[in-house]
Amino acid sequence: MIQVEHLTKEYKRVIRREGFLGSVRTLFSAQYETIPAVNDISFRIDEGELVGYIGPNGAGKSTSIKMLCGILVPTSGRIEVNGLIPHKERMKNTRQIGAVFGQKTQLWWDVPVIESLRLFRDIYKVPEAQYKHNLNLFNDLLDLHEFQNTPVRQLSLGQRLRADMAAALLHNPRLLFLDEPMIGVDVVAKERLRNFIQEINRDQKVTILLTTHDMVDIEKVCSRIMIIDHGHIVYDGSLAQIRNQYGKQRKLVVEFEEAVPDFSEPNAALVKSEGRKKWFAFNRFETSPSTLIANISSRYPILDLAVEEPEIEEIVRTIYQGKPGNARENGT
């Protein structure tokens, strides 16, 4: 579906000179600096996949999505989207993809939602039967009828994103790009959009590439994640794999029968202590939880205990901070 090879995008920016004379000089001879936004990335997405694309701000997510949409030309490298080269065949490519940008709406600001959708129908030449069918589907899944006669500028953010999703899918694209589609949306609306994304992926076999900052989105929705940082893809694989690979550390939470003084075990560090509860961090490849529990229970009587998996958010944070170390040796 999508094939990307050694894709690079550099932006040219004018270097600003300081002061008035500097500005005048810039008018006549500008100096440029090149800023790499995406640096030699390669990946492949197959039909029907639902891929989470994550990375800190400025990592190159939006730049890559724009290139896949054909509205940005790569500096070098190759992109193929369902057999087309997006920036060379922009108009043809836009017919086979749908896109939602959380920060920008595709709808017309002043007119009711339903009018915007009608215009989409005319622009994409959607047959009437398909239009009606899709509209019914969106009514079921997104409750579009609740606000279809409201002008877009009066919609709440959650409603606007639902309307944008409907507009992006009206022409039955095989591929959907979602660039932070849930930014700033409340918990309930988020849950709803997540379910919708999963449903269209599962039932209509739409291939989806989703960027987000919310790890809950990733955990609930995606089967695969790609992490980009400073223009490089630093991880590409399944969620389970990232846990195995990067999540060496586990935490043992112990609740004692009565308050006990702080102590630490040879293979486990005390990381937190609160009332009768204590948290011990240990490396699951070096220490087994059962040994650890046996050791602790020989010191003090235990009331309750639990082993905590590392949060995906924590793992991603360590990757962003450039400390992928403690797992790299396990191989990629």
Partner: peptide, 13 residues
């Protein structure tokens, strides 16, 4: 505003 992206995303010249 950068909204030109959205115009170019439509299958229209």
């Amino acid at each position: 505003s950068g909204a030109i992206d959205v115009d170019l995303l439509k299958p229209l010249d």
